[in-house]
Structure formats: C-alpha cells, structure tokens
C-alpha cells in the first residue's frame, strides 16, 4: 500500500509541475504583471509594493520569476491577495473547507441516489418503473444544474410562503449561528447544506444512473452469472456480489475523473445558493484582477485533485482484487 502511494506521488509530480507552469504562464499573459492592480490600489503603500516586487523578482526574467513563485509556494506562501489584503492561503482555505463539505455531502448523495436506481433499472428492465425512471432521467440530463437549482428555489419559496415553514435557502449559516450550541451549529449548517447538495446530486446522478444500468445489464448476460444462478445462489447475492461488483469497476476507476466535475458543479450551486464557497470568491477575483488568488487557488485544487485520483486508484484495488496496488 505505502509503496503504491509513494509511486503515485512521484508520478504526479510532473503533472503538478506542468500544471503550475501552465497556470503561471496563463497569468503572465494578462496585461501588466501581478502588481498592476496593486499599484492602482491606494491601500497599498509604495514600500509594500517595493517589497512584493523584490519578493517575487518582477525585475528578473520570466523563468526566474516562475522559480521564485514555485519556491515560495513550496514554503506555503501563495502570495498576497490584493482584494483582501491577506495571504492567499488564509483567504482561500476556509472557503475550500466550506466547498469540501458541499462536495462531500453531494457526492455521498450522488451515489446513494444513482446506485439503487441504476440497479433497480437493470433488474426490472423494461418494467413500467424502469421506463418512467428513464424518461425522468433523460429530462434531467438536459437541465443545467443552476437552472434546476433556480426552479427548486422557486418552489421552496412558494412552499415557504404557503406553509410558513422556515426552510433555509441560501447561505451556510443562520443569523443566530453564533448563539447556537455546538450540535445546534452542526444541525444549522447541515440544514443549509442539504438542499444544494441534493440538487447537485440529482442533476449529476442522471448520467451515472444510466451508466450503472447499462453496466449491470451487460454483466447480467455473462456466463458466470448464469452459472451462479444455476448453482442456486440466492438472487440477492447474484445481484450484489456477482453482478454489481463487476459492473461498477469502470465507475470506480472513473471516480478520480468525476472530482473535477463535482467541484465545478458545486461552484454553480454556491453561486445560486449564495454559499460561501470558492467559486463566488473567484468570480469577484476576476473583477478585481486578484491574480495571485486565482493562480494560488488553481494550484491548490490541482493538488487536491491529484490526491483524489490516488484515492480512486486505491478504491479500485479494494473493489477489484485483480488490480494489484503493490
């Protein structure tokens, strides 16, 4: 296990380096340099500018600037966000945590929705239930997630006006959050998280459900499933042990690839539900040309993604004994 993780780590270094080069040079393409927006900002003193300019070696050739930027990052210094007047990491980290909660919860729900429905569709192929689920999923595939979210908000607001229930839409905490006890706080955040997470999970699950159904159907026709049935293995075991475990292999292999999509998808939910995650912050950063923030953040997500990919490889080895991790 550990040698495998080490090997993955070593393999991911070139990708990470290239990604950082790409990010750096894209940012370099912007008119002016890192400090142009800062020079226009009266809140930053000339000494500070001088200091920053020296720190990042803006008078040096481009490749040397890149090395310095990279070197600073290795020491955990992602630069200064001009908009917030704080180190990038301090600005970004709490928001990444917020976004992670949303992504985690919606990913859990995503599988909790997609797997049972996909398996049901395969077992009862062409039944009325299967057909109606298929039609609904086909509709869902065409819905942009933000549009689905807007519709859900519309109906929740109608329901709220009609019943007077306090269903939270938007934000991450209630106004009285600071006054709540610890379990009360968890419950409060969860209440705010659940609606965006469900909307995101449902809008993404349509695709996966169809894949699972297709995979299950394919495996069900194979010889070893027929053999298992002939031997009198219980139906439950045939479906979950023989068929399901083989059917989901390509899906497990793709978990790592799903992560970028899940993070991007969560971005739309954050914007629609005014959730304090990373995407709303990045969108304001475009407006203020807060380039360090954007570049530093992109590097951090790339690292997180590479970790995610390694986890998905590990999972694949757990599900499929034929894949050796060592």
């Amino acid at each position: 296990m550990i040698p495998f993780l080490l090997r993955r780590l070593v393999q991911s270094i070139p990708t990470l380096l290239l990604a950082s080069v790409l990010i750096f040079f894209v940012i370099q393409l912007a008119p002016g340099d890192f400090l142009t927006p800062a020079r226009l900002n009266p809140g930053i003193s000339p000494e500070q500018l001088e200091n920053l300019s020296r720190n990042f070696g803006l008078d040096r050739p481009v490749w040397e600037q890149y090395l310095r930027w990279m070197g600073n990052m290795l020491q955990g210094d992602f630069g200064l966000s001009f908009q917030y007047q704080q180190p990038v990491l301090d600005v970004v980290w709490p928001r990444i945590k917020n976004s992670m909660w949303l992504v985690l919860l919606s990913t859990l729900l995503f599988y909790a929705i997609a797997i049972p429905i996909g398996v049901y569709g395969a077992i009862r192929q062409n039944s009325l239930g299967d057909k109606s689920i298929n039609v609904v999923l086909y509709f869902l595939l065409g819905f942009p997630s933000f549009f689905l979210a807007l519709i859900v908000i519309y109906f929740i607001l109608l329901a709220r006006d009609a019943t007077g229930l306090d269903i939270p839409v938007g934000g991450m905490t209630s106004n009285n959050y600071d006054a709540l006890s610890a379990p009360g706080r968890v419950w409060d955040v969860l209440k705010h998280l659940i609606i965006p997470a469900v909307v995101l999970a449902v809008s993404d699950a349509a695709g996966l459900t169809r894949v699972i159904r297709g995979q299950m159907l394919e495996v069900m026709r194979s010889d070893y499933v027929r053999t298992a049935r002939a031997k009198g293995v219980s139906e439950r075991s045939v479906i979950w042990k023989h068929t399901f475990r083989n059917g989901i292999l390509p899906i497990v292999a793709g978990i790592g690839g799903l992560l970028p999509a899940a993070i991007s998808g969560a971005g739309f939910m954050e914007v629609v539900f005014a959730y304090p995650g990373v995407t709303p912050m990045l969108l304001t950063a475009i407006g203020t040309q807060d380039l360090y923030l954007i570049a530093g953040f992109n590097v951090i997500t790339t690292i997180l993604l590479i970790i995610g990919n390694a986890i998905s490889d590990l999972l694949l080895a757990v599900v499929d004994p034929r894949v050796k991790v060592a």
């Binding site: 990708t15 990470l16 990604a19 790409l22 990010i23 894209v26 940012i27 393409l29 912007a30 690839g257 992560l259 970028p260 999509a261 993070i263 991007s264 971005g267 739309f268 995407t279 990045l282 969108l283 950063a285 475009i286 040309q289 380039l291 954007i294 570049a295 953040f297 992109n298 997500t301 790339t302 993604l305 590479i306």
Partner: peptide, 16 residues
C-alpha cells in the same frame, strides 16, 4: 484534465 474545468475557465477569463 487535472485542473477543474470551471476554474480553468475562470482563470483564462481573468487574463482578459
């Protein structure tokens, strides 16, 4: 493929 698409787009947009 390692950088989430939405953030890559946001970054590229921020260049202009």
């Amino acid at each position: 493929s390692a950088i989430p698409g939405l953030f890559l787009l946001i970054m590229l947009r921020s260049v202009f």
